[in-house]
Design a binder for these strands. Structure first.
Length: 332
DNA sequence: AATCGTCCCAACCGCTTTACA
DNA sequence: TTGTAAAGCGGTTGGGACGAT
């Protein structure tokens, strides 16, 4: 039962590809197209695993790939998208033509992450490190984590009551600003067409002195690795905080911890993935690991559509949340 | 010239989801 | 229905390139 193995993994070449090997893959694809990669090593005369061939093609040989340096515009797009969806590189890469998830991931890890840290921005949360440290220092040994009040729309209370009723409906509210117009607006207003990191550093540092407005907190709250165990993806999606300016990070962290115990006792929920809480009907709500929460049978294209819908939301949300657009959610 | 440290990225690893026999 | 591999994906690493000493 099952498929036969694609190759003898103990007897295949590993390591860097030679030009000759690349030529064989290119010739094979030119003649046969992209199909069953398990056949490629044999038919192309390569002593490689099919998976290795696929990766070589996907990450390097594809003719539509760019091999030049990332532009400032691309970097800004990565920043914005990473802030919205986290380290979901394939998703981010889909919005950067000619770039692979590996490209984006490498560029983030080698350049952008370091630059953010240099600016005093936590690359995971996209919040000022000074704020995180301040809030961390304020953590009380007696959390009052279930008393969130979101002054913006009361969503936190709605979230909590739902959770306690075991009606799992929630995730973080993704900031309603990710559309093409906004990307350009952010770029122009906060990075500039010829954005230079060094020039922005001083203003960024100054901004770190500001504590987030409720809107900023709302928009920043997708964060994740810090508080949401990777091993519990569907559960972590319920743990997204709706922090307010009056509660802050410490409540967020402690709330996660307190919820985690409860949630581990629950069955995995079935969710349709995109749920607008009644108290905030116009704010799209996204699961952090949204595939995990899309309804049964939904395809990956549903996730893409979801992201596209975020990226394409424009006028309606701008008019509904003018603060985000005018006050500069991206003032980090 | 030699050594060392850092940067960068291609490639691999390992996990989850999907497809297939 | 079940077991297995392929495909997809994010995390990690090996080693070459390069600059500083």
């Amino acid at each position: 039962m099952g498929r036969p193995p694609c190759c003898d993994k103990s007897n295949v070449k590993k390591g860097p590809w030679t030009p000759e090997e690349d030529a064989k893959v290119l010739a094979y694809v030119a003649n046969h197209g992209i199909g069953n990669w398990t056949l490629v090593p044999e038919k192309a005369g390569l002593n490689r695993c099919g998976k290795s061939c696929r990766l070589r093609w996907t990450n390097y040989l594809r003719p539509d790939l760019k091999h030049d340096a990332f532009t400032p515009q691309e970097e800004n797009h990565i920043l914005v998208l990473h802030q919205a969806v986290g380290s979901r590189w394939s998703l981010i890469a889909k919005h950067l033509p000619g770039r692979t998830d590996n490209d984006v991931k490498n560029h983030w890890n080698t350049k952008l992450r370091k630059k953010l840290m240099k600016m005093g921005i936590d690359p995971v949360t996209h919040k000022p490190i000074s704020q995180i440290l301040t809030d961390f220092g304020n953590i009380s040994p007696f959390p009052n984590s279930r008393n969130h009040v979101d002054p913006l729309n009361g969503f936190a209370n709605n979230f909590m009551s739902n959770s306690e009723a075991s009606v799992v409906t929630t995730d973080y509210a993704i900031p309603p600003m990710l559309n093409t117009t906004m990307l350009e607006q952010v770029q122009d207003n906060h990075f500039g067409n010829n954005y230079v990191w060094e020039n922005a550093e001083a203003s960024f540092q100054a901004k770190t002195q500001e504590i987030s407005s409720p809107l900023k907190s709302l928009a920043s709250c997708h964060v994740t690795e810090l508080s949401s165990p990777q091993s519990l993806p569907w559960k972590s999606s319920q743990l997204q905080p709706m922090q307010s300016s009056s509660s802050g990070w410490n409540d967020f962290l402690l709330n996660d911890l307190s919820l985690l115990t409860d949630l581990e006792q629950q069955e995995e929920p079935k969710s349709n993935g995109i749920i607008a809480p009644s108290s905030c009907p116009s704010v799209p709500v996204q699961n952090e690991k949204c595939e995990n929460n899309f309804s049964e049978g939904s395809s990956s294209s549903a996730v893409d559509s979801f992201v596209d819908s975020i990226l394409n939301q424009d006028k309606e949300l701008q008019s509904e949340y003018p603060q985000i657009f005018s006050d500069g959610y991206f003032n980090y």
